[in-house]
Every structure is written in C-alpha cells, then in structure tokens.
C-alpha cells in the first residue's frame, strides 16, 4: 500500500489521458454506429463522467500526498530538447 502511495504522483499523466480514453471510446462508438439515439446517451455521459471523476480523484490523492511532501511528477515531451538533465 505504501509503495502504491509513493508511486502515485508518477501516475499524474493519467489525469489528461483518462478524458482522452473517453474521447476515443465515444468516437469509436459514434463511428461504428452504436452510439445513436436516446438509448445510447447514458453510456456516453457515463464514460465521460467516469473519466473526469477518475482524474479528479487522482488529483485529490496527489494533492494529499503533496501535502506530505511527495513531489508530483511532470509530464515530459521532447526529452532531446532538454539542455539540462531531465527528471
């Protein structure tokens, strides 16, 4: 449990990725024709809501850990562009 909590800040990348997963699933459903009509509305809303809620829970957990002095990770892109050593 403690190991999981210690590594939690490194999962911060999930916060923007979770809504993207919802986008991909909902877009696939629309393209495949399974998300049409009123009956498909609750699943679309639930997927987006779950993704947003997952991000919120993760952020709150990381906030709580940051208060106990566990520095959160950073999203990194283009490592080769770093002139200083990238963490």
């Amino acid at each position: 449990m403690m190991v999981l909590l210690e590594t939690l800040p490194n999962w911060i990348w999930l916060v923007p990725v979770l809504p993207l997963v919802a986008v991909v699933i909902n877009a696939a459903r629309v393209l495949l024709g399974t998300a049409t009509g009123d009956a498909a509305e609750p699943l679309t809303a639930r997927l987006s809501s779950l993704a947003a809620f997952g991000g919120l829970v993760l952020m709150i957990a990381i906030d709580a850990l940051a208060l106990i002095d566990a520095p959160p990770g950073h999203l990194r892109l283009a490592h080769s562009s770093c002139s200083t050593p990238c963490r």
Partner: peptide
Amino acid sequence: GFHRFFIALSFFLAGIQFVLLAGNGLL
C-alpha cells in the same frame, strides 16, 4: 449533437489538463 458534445468536452478536459500539468512549453 449529444455524443458530439461529450466528445468535444472530454477532448477539452484532456487539453486543459495538458496545459496545467505540463512540465514544458511544448506539451
């Protein structure tokens, strides 16, 4: 456009979190 709205809104949430949590200007 119910489904279209939720797709665009989730896409926005992902984008704004990238802006807020990115460690560099490119991301």
